[in-house]
């Protein structure tokens, strides 16, 4: 009996380890508002999963729960098999989170900011240097990294923050609307950056409401509306399932149904 129990547990653990993220029957209620209602999906390692939906749909709440900032009211989120609800501190070692429209410390230089953030992930100086060097390569800001963040444009800050988010090569990078507010060129560069990093093995959970953009960078998408995950799958599968030309049309049909 005991042997069966341990075998089952081992199987489940191994199965969970194949996923960078498993969201299981997740719910979040703020007083009487149900922001997330019984949401379940998963994300394989090296995959880009995008949550799409209109403003206030519940995307950020799901991301914040995965980032251990909010506690779920029901269900759980497993990151690399570790429970967000039970052991959030361990989850933080596996993830990095980039909030929507986040800033960086304005009094620091770009390089100073990267170095400071790296020091929060490791005490080992050699590893810290590796993290910073990786971020320098990814962000492409060159000499401007020696300037104070105060003087950066929005696009430069976003590049810096994305580089910071992936410099530790996390199991899961959670990016909330990574290209929001950016011009076409900057948004394109960041999409390419995410695509390349996922090819290198980083898993991404991203959110957005620009569905055409999301279609280009995601392996799979989840469409969330009023806190409920209405559909999830590859963009092409969803389009054929709903007889749509693009994800916008898929969303329109789901929202109107």
């Amino acid at each position: 009996m005991q042997q069966i129990f341990f075998n089952t547990l081992l199987k489940e653990t191994v199965a969970n380890m194949n996923y960078a993220l498993k969201v299981e029957n997740l719910s979040k209620t703020y007083t009487n508002i149900k922001a997330v209602d019984d949401v379940s999906f998963n994300l394989k390692k090296g995959e880009v999963f995008a949550l799409i939906g209109s403003n206030g749909a519940g995307k950020t709440t799901v991301l914040r729960i995965a980032a251990t900032l909010l506690k779920p009211t029901g269900g759980d989120v497993l990151v690399d098999g570790i429970s967000v609800a039970k052991t959030p501190a361990k989850v933080r070692e596996k993830i990095s989170y980039l909030p929507d429209e986040a800033g960086a410390y304005k009094t620091m230089t770009g390089i100073g900011y990267l170095s400071f953030m790296a020091s929060l992930f490791t005490r080992d100086e050699k590893r810290k240097r590796e993290y910073v060097e990786h971020a320098i390569k990814v962000c492409g800001l060159g000499e401007r990294l020696n300037d104070k963040v105060r003087g950066y444009s929005r696009g430069m800050i976003r590049k810096l923050l994305i580089a910071r988010a992936i410099m530790t090569k996390p199991c899961l990078a959670i990016l909330d609307e990574p290209t929001s507010g950016l011009d076409v060129i900057n948004a394109l560069e960041i999409r390419r950056m995410i695509r390349k990093l996922s090819e290198d093995g980083t898993s991404f959970l991203i959110s957005g409401h620009n569905m055409l953009e999301i279609e280009h960078i995601s392996n799979r998408v989840g469409i969330i509306n009023k806190g409920v995950l209405c559909a999830a799958g590859c963009p092409d599968d969803l389009k054929s399932e709903y007889g749509a030309n693009n994800l916008e049309e898929v969303f329109e049909r789901i929202a109107n149904s």
Binding site: T68, R92, Y97, P99, A102, G103, Y105, L120, F121, L161
Partner: peptide, 11 residues
């Protein structure tokens, strides 16, 4: 600025 959110999500 949401730097606090970033900070709180670190280990």
């Amino acid at each position: 600025d949401k730097t606090l959110e970033t900070l709180l999500s670190t280990p």
